[in-house]
Nucleic acid binder design. Structure first.
Lengths: 217, 217, 217, 217
DNA sequence: AATGAATGAGAATTCATTCAT
DNA sequence: GATGAATGAATTCTCATTCAT
């Protein structure tokens, strides 16, 4: 059974790490506060208080506040994303979707679930993308890797089969990502828990995208 | 001739205001710095320096740094957006688009141009949406107004004419906005100037959306 | 009349500067505390308190504590020392000492007075020489300039006249400085005011040095 | 054969002590770091790292950082200095220098070697003298003991024999120390290893001092 | 209106020291 | 004895804001 729940991944990845319990608490508290208030508006004393540790402890391991942010985002970028991505890719490879619509629906639902499970990390990540042009470039690279990788190949195969119209792989992914994000962004940004019927919404999105993407005579 | 260039609107709107030249410089400098570095990371002394005024002057009119941000975003929300929107609505009304595709293409190109012209304001705005849940609600309200307003009516008319498939007005707008944003967001976030062929891209987006939205048998 | 009183020079040099009264107080307080307790053991709040200003003011102009130290030592090195040195050199040139012993006595008394007048600066300076190898090199350079400059020439002239024995100019200066310092160092280091009969001590030192340096058959 | 090599003395004295190997490493690392960076600028974690022990170990024996400094300087003052001094005194007594110049040369060379061998300790010591007025007084006491002790007696004997001119024992020692220090101080302060021809320099210094100190008609 | 020196509350960070294991 | 995570008081430094001129 697949584990693309990033929150779970996050918790387990920090548990597996060499970090002490208190240091893990520091990371968890930081994630929560950075997501709620933003990086700049979060003070080290707030982190210490929420984590239930002294202020010294906040800096013992991560040296600076920026260091905490990096400790939160590095595994998210270098570990969690690729890990989920690989899992996702193998899933795609094994299930041998002969039907583009099934494939698309699977992808959309999968990413929606991922986003719902990783709201906090994604919000911090989004903040950082805006704050930091380097982060933006890093995503562009990951994006190109996706297109050049197995996902791009799968899409190309569907194009060859005539299930996708005359449209570049790039655009297929851009539009798909865009539609998925249009559902998720309000839920990521809003701190409130908005209800979300993932089954219905993923079908709705799939239907629209299929019409937009498939071959038209 | 239409003026939906927000930068021009911004400059002219602050020129028309009762603000002294120095105060106008403060606003311009703040906009540039907030867009570049974010609100929190911009110090009042940086604003003073870029505006070529003393630190005291920065606070003379706007009292607080938050006040400057509001002075930048209030007209953007309450003035510039509606003004462009009205203009846009009357344009739509007068031109009497009988063809949904022409209408869609007009809308998309118009909004793309708007985004290109207002990159700085939009970046500050996007930051603020993430930072501030109130801002998020405010947009939701504007969004509902749009749907309830003339634009919603126009879309409904096209649906009645059978030019749009069985899809809610909400979704039509969500998908359209989403696709347009997928083109603009990278250009808004990146501080670099990326080239953009608005004619080609707006046609490309229109074509995809038409396929996705139109009636299918 | 000559002004080789460095404390006076210090006060007047900071008065002449563009510094506000409060900033001058910060420098004065820092000098006193650095001399008394050392640079590292002096806190910014102590400086603020002694200067009668807020802690913010301490950093407004000089940015860092290190910046204050530099603001204290730079003029001492680049301004006060050369200024006194030039004055001293012209004094030597105009008075045309035909007698080496008179010359030596003049020099010794002059430097003793200088040291008594600049106890605080010298103590901070001495601390910094030990702390900072760069400072040490800087002195070596100043020292070489002295030997290559007019003072070296004067000594050489006395050697040609047979009033100084077979001993290098370097050594003449090393021994002279060393003997003068042996009188002054205890008074610079000790925070207490030790009495000092400059007339008697300068004569005593001169007599010893004359015997050591003059030509022996 | 005499052992006035303080580094050796230091190493052997801490080996002889009841300290564990790790505690000895702490002392050695502290000495190195205090000499290089100064006492205040050396952190306990630096000491731990250089000593190859945990931070806890640094404080296990010596309780405080100040305690480490005292552990370094106490034996230097109370043990090493007197020990060398006694050795030196007995050397003086047994060799029965009938010639003041030989005696002076012996003393100078001996002290120069001592300084070269104890550069680190001396640098820490010098720092501490400046930082701490108590340390200054302590030296004054040791100095007086020297004068009142055997060395003073030896000098007085030479004066009675007419080999030293009309000059106080105090001055004889002040001038001698001063000249020796003028050679050694640059080598103690500079962290770099400067070459030093002890044979030539000690002769040079002796010659100068002899001329300055001996009876003149 | 404008200035810019001054403020002081608060933020990040450091580090000697402690203590449970 | 040794460890090293944790502490928290102290320290440097920042910066929005004020106010006398």
């Amino acid at each position: 059974m697949k584990i693309n729940n990033v929150e779970t991944l996050f918790d387990s990845s920090i548990s597996e790490s060499e970090l002490s319990v208190k240091q893990q608490e520091v990371l968890k508290a930081s994630l929560t506060l950075f997501a709620q208030q933003g990086f700049e508006s979060t003070t080290s004393s707030q982190i210490a208080e929420l984590a239930g540790v002294s202020e010294g402890t906040v800096f013992k391991k991560f040296k600076t506040k920026q260091g905490i942010l990096e400790a939160l985002l590095r595994p998210f970028i270098e570990n969690v994303i690729p890990r989920v991505m690989n899992e996702f890719e193998s899933e795609v490879a094994t299930n041998e979707y002969s039907d583009f619509e099934s494939f698309l629906h699977y992808i959309i639902k999968d990413r929606m679930q991922f986003a719902l499970d990783s709201k906090k990390q994604l919000k911090v990540f989004v903040q950082e993308i805006i704050r930091n042009p380097e982060m933006f470039k890093l995503i562009a690279v990951k994006w190109d890797e996706l297109i050049a990788g197995r996902i791009g190949q799968v899409i190309n195969r569907f194009k060859e089969k005539g299930q996708i119209g005359d449209i570049s792989t790039d655009q297929v992914m851009q539009y798909t990502a865009s539609i998925v994000l249009s559902y998720m962004i309000p839920r990521i940004i809003s701190n409130a828990d908005m209800s979300f019927d993932i089954e219905q919404k993923s079908l709705e999105a799939t239907k629209f995208l299929m019409n937009g993407l498939r071959k038209h005579d």
